[in-house]
Design a protein around this nucleic acid. Structure first.
Lengths: 263, 263
DNA sequence: CCATCTTTGTGCACGCGTTCACAAAGACAT
DNA sequence: ATGTCTTTGTGAACGCGTGCACAAAGATGG
């Protein structure tokens, strides 16, 4: 298939590595805090500590932006705030739409950090007609029917999907067709998008599962013997003779064994 | 400082690379969908497409778990679901507490995918006394004062922080002191934790800023001329003579220039 | 003007992750 | 039983990201 890739292809933006771009917001946050305390300059060591990274990494990251530091002194806070903001495109206004105003969508609409840095909630969109017109976070919810016109009229290029998983791909397709080229996806689904569209995924369930993996390792490390004998006995290994299905797209007419594991 | 590191040190778990662990939940989700459709086997190609990854990567990932496939046929769906679930530690029950029941905390509590795969919301905790006792998602909110006893009585090892940024580190410290060793942080702050504690961060603001970076690049690629002359003029470069403050921790008594950039 | 001290910027090496490409393994047909 | 065909499992090469360690740059003090 050649429908589209899922995660950021991002071969390399303009010499700035993707890993560095992902850390710039971290630096910016730390710098903003320093700025509010009227601290004029910071060393790479101090700023790195505040951002929770290695100081060498920070210096290398900044080197991609240019030589904005002064040897023997450090970095000018205000100047660096501006340079990073500009590099991230935060000096301009980004209208954003949120699609799917359930619990999560409403929480996102109310999120303060949204509007703070160049991002503005241009519209809230939901498929439920009973939601239409109801104000959430001071913004009236609009119906999905008007999605295309909303995108166009507001010049929206960033969309946030907070719908159930089943509706996510369909919403995504409509957003992309309407001109959205960056999507932040909170639905637990893999989105297919054409080239040139960026998708970033935020998935609570996946994060928890990763934590569980490490948690299990910690628990089963010191204690000897079987720590994995918890809930269910191991499922049967694949039978010696396995049914094949190379051509047929539908399940075979013969009785398929539905499931051997508890869901 | 030697207080602690911020992100997962995770040198390598048990031969399973961290990048592979992060993809296992993706595979599991795709496999579960296949299982519900009673599909008996999948090839690496099909499953990779469903999970949105490269098929070679998928096979290598699975090779870390063991040889669970059958050459010429593919992978047994049910068996693989079980193996991945076991590897991720999802065959056991993980009680989870959510601290900070604001908009986001409430949304997380209501999130269905939470309870589905081995995770159980054991308690909701908030610092606001007027919230205490009020049921959210069918679970009564408890007060922060009882945090330690709640953790201990329920055997909680995974905590979710959905508080404002200012309270996050303090909550984190109390969670860790009470025995929590894995934290999912939604607050926009860098958390410091001792060794042996895993922290994963979910940050809406950062994701949006990364999208904005790529969005800006797309916009300023084809059109010629200055595309960066949008909102504010460039801040003044660092002055030839910059005030130093190597020893003093407090801002100097002389009038500091507060800010040159619009917040 | 020179010496010293601080801190940046970066060349270099190393390790992890990704991808290619192919041999080995097994199913299936005859 | 043998040959063919499909698909896995993995050796090897490559590229990216990270961290060390140090030279260059500039400030500061005498």
């Amino acid at each position: 298939m050649a429908t589209g890739r899922t995660h950021r292809p991002a071969t390399r933006s303009r010499g700035i590595p993707e890993a560095t771009v992902a850390r710039l917001p971290l630096y910016l946050r730390a710098l903003t805090a320093l700025s509010e305390r009227s601290v004029p300059t910071v060393s790479s060591e101090e700023l790195a500590a505040a951002a929770g990274v290695n100081s060498a990494k920070l210096r290398k990251d900044f080197s991609y932006l240019g030589s904005y530091g002064t040897r023997g002194v450090g970095y000018d806070v205000e100047y660096l705030v501006y340079q990073i903001s500009r590099e991230l495109g935060l000096t301009q206004d980004w209208p954003v739409v949120i699609v799917g105003i359930g619990n999560l969508g409403a929480a996102l609409a109310n999120y303060g950090g949204f509007a703070s840095r160049g991002f503005r909630v241009a519209a809230l969109i939901d498929a439920d007609p009973s939601m239409t017109g109801r104000p959430v976070a001071g913004i009236p919810v609009q119906h999905t029917d008007d999605l295309e016109s909303i995108i166009e009229e507001n010049g929206v290029s960033i969309g946030v999907i907070a719908t159930p998983a089943g509706a996510a791909q369909q919403v995504c397709d409509r957003l992309v067709a309407a001109g959205v080229t960056s999507i932040l996806n909170f639905a637990p689904t893999v989105l297919s998008v054409p080239d040139g569209v960026d998708v970033r995924k935020v998935d609570l369930s996946i994060e928890l599962q990763i934590l569980a993996f490490h948690e299990q390792r910690k628990a089963g490390e010191e204690p000897t013997g079987e720590s994995a004998a918890d809930t269910a006995p191991p499922a049967a290994p694949p039978a010696a003779t396995v049914r094949r299905r190379t051509d047929g797209t539908e399940p075979g007419p013969d009785g398929d064994v539905p499931a051997v594991m508890p869901a």
